[in-house]
Design a protein around this nucleic acid. Sequence first.
DNA 1: TTGTACGCGTTATCAG
DNA 2: CTGATAACGCGTACAA
Lengths: 328, 328
Amino acid sequence: MKDVAAHAGVGLSTVSRVVAGSPGVSLEKTQAVEDAIAALGFRRNDFARTLRTGATHTIGVVVTRISDPFYATLIGAIERRAQEHQMLVLVASGTDDPDEGVRVLQRVLSRQLDGLILVAHEDADYGFLAQEQRAGAPFVFVDRPPRGVDADLVMVDNENGAAAAVAHLVAAGHQRIACIAHVSGRFTSERRQAGYRAGLRAAGLPVDPALIVEVEDDVDACATALRALFAADAPPTALFTTNSRTTTAVLQALRALGEAPALVGFDDFALANLMTPPTTTVAQDPTAIGEAAVDLLFERIAGAAGQPRRIELGTRIIPRGSGEIAPR
Amino acid sequence: MKDVAAHAGVGLSTVSRVVAGSPGVSLEKTQAVEDAIAALGFRRNDFARTLRTGATHTIGVVVTRISDPFYATLIGAIERRAQEHQMLVLVASGTDDPDEGVRVLQRVLSRQLDGLILVAHEDADYGFLAQEQRAGAPFVFVDRPPRGVDADLVMVDNENGAAAAVAHLVAAGHQRIACIAHVSGRFTSERRQAGYRAGLRAAGLPVDPALIVEVEDDVDACATALRALFAADAPPTALFTTNSRTTTAVLQALRALGEAPALVGFDDFALANLMTPPTTTVAQDPTAIGEAAVDLLFERIAGAAGQPRRIELGTRIIPRGSGEIAPR
DNA sequence: TTGTACGCGTTATCAG
DNA sequence: CTGATAACGCGTACAA
C-alpha cells in the first residue's frame, strides 16, 4: 500500500479508502490510486486486514471425508447458501484418524474464521471446544452430536426414518426383515437400529437378534454376513441397510451370491434407480441440512445467544422397486 | 501472548519460543508458560504469525464443483499428500458461473497461501494470473488448461484414452460406433472426440458425422439424442460417451428407451459394476492426478523455476461387460 | 478531502 | 538462556 501511495502521490489512508471502497475520496485521486494499483499489481493482504479488523468474512467447514458423496453435496449446499451472504467457504477434511481430525480442526480454528460447520469424528473428544464456545467463533455440528461439548446440531430423524423403512417392507408382506448395520459411525448406526426395532414393534413383529448384524462396509464382510443369514433355518426375506456405503456393499455381495431379497437402504445414492431392481431408499436431504446449518450459524454470527439448538429434519422414502418385492 | 507472558511471569519472546517449539528455553519456564497457556486458553493467532513470517503452511484448492465425485476424490488425494508435508489444505468451490469462480479465486489469492491447485473454468479468462505468476504463490492447474495464462498442468491423455475405447469396441466387432459428447467442459470433450475420430481412423473405419452428437448431460437430452440415433437408417451398434455424467445420463435414457447397445464410457464411476450389464469404462486415476499436482506444486514452492510443465497421465480400460457386447 | 500516527499479535534481531 | 524492541500490512481515530 505504501508503494501504491507513493506511486499515486497520495497518502496511505487514501489508498486504504479506495481499496475498501469507502466514500470521501475525490474522483481524481481515486483514479490515480486505481492506476497505481493496476500498474503495481497490488492486492490487499487479507492477513493484515484481518489482524486489524478481526473479521474474516469466511466460514470453515470441516468434514471427516470430503470424498463421501453425502458430504460433498452438503458442502455444495453450504457454499451456495454462504455465498448469498458474501461469505467465502473454506473446506478442510480430516481422515479416518480422530487425532488427525482434531489436528486439522485446531489449525482451522487458529485461522479465526467467522464461524464453523463441523462433522464430528466419532472417536474424538471435542471437550477442548468448550472454551472456544465462550470466546471464539460460533460453530454448528452436522449429522451427529460431538462427544465432549454441547453445540448447535443439525441432523435427520434417524429413528423415524428407519422405522418407516421397516413399515414399508412390512406393508409389502415381509415378516423376517434383517438389519445390516454399519459399524463406523456408531451414532447413526445405533439410532437407525433403534428405529428398526421400533418399526418391528409397531408392526407387532418380534425383534430377532439373529437378524441384526453389524458389518464393515466392504463387500467381503457383507458377503460373509449375508451368507450366514441366508443359511439359517429361517432366513430373512427382506433387508434393511443403515447407510449408503453399506447398501452398495450389500448390493455387490448380493449379486455375487445370486440372491435378490427385498431391500430398503438408509441414505439415497446416485444411480440407485439403475440398480436391478432399482433400490428403494430412505433419503436424507443433504441440501436442506447444509442450508439449515448455515442459517443457524449466521444467526450465531449475528449475535444470537442462548442454549444450543438441535434441528432434526425428516426423511423421505423413495420407492423404486427393491422395497416393494413381496416375500417368496 | 502478552497475557500469557504476564501470567507466567516471563518475557514475550519466551512465550513465542515455547509456542513455536523453538529450543533454548529452560524446562522451568517452559512449564510455567504451558500452564499459563492452559489456564488462559490461549491459541496463537495465525494471521499475525503469517503477517510476520509470510508463510501460511497452507495450500488452496479451487475447483468448479466440489460435489462432482471426480473432484471430491481428487481433493481427497491432494489432502493426503499435502498432509505428509504438514500442509493444511483449504478447498473452495466455484459455481457454474465463471465470474463467480474468478471472484472466489481472487478471495483465495488474497489469502496468500503457499500454493494453489486449480481447476480452470472453461469460460473464464485467467489472464490476471500472469502477474501473480511472477510475484505470488505458485499454482498448478488440473484436468484442463486455463485460458489466458500458461502454467503447470496435470491432465490425462484424453485423446489416447478415447481412441482406446473405440479400439475396444472395434475389437468386439463394432463398425458403427456413436460418440455421445458432453458440451460443458469443451476442452475435454473436444480432445475425446478427436480421440474417437483417431480411433476410428486407426481401425480403418469412416468417421460419420451423423454418429457424433453433443448433448447436455441430463437424461432428457440424452434420450432425445439416442432416439434420433436409433431411428436412423443405419443405427449405431455401440456407444462411446465422453464423461461420467454423460455416461450415467445415457444409461438412464437407454433404460427408458429399452435399448442396450454396447457402451464404453470415459471416466470410471462408482457402481459401474452394478449396472446391467456392468459398464466398461476408460478410467482416469484422480488419486494419481492429485498426487502429481501436489508434487509439482511443492517443487515450485521449494523454489523450482523454469518453464511451465505439462504432465499427461495415462488412462486404463476397465472391461466389465457393456463394452464386450457383440453387434447384433 | 487528505495525511499522520498508532496498534492489531506475532516473530526476528540483538543486547544482556 | 532471556527479554526488549522493531517490523509485518492494514484500518482508523484524529488532526490538518
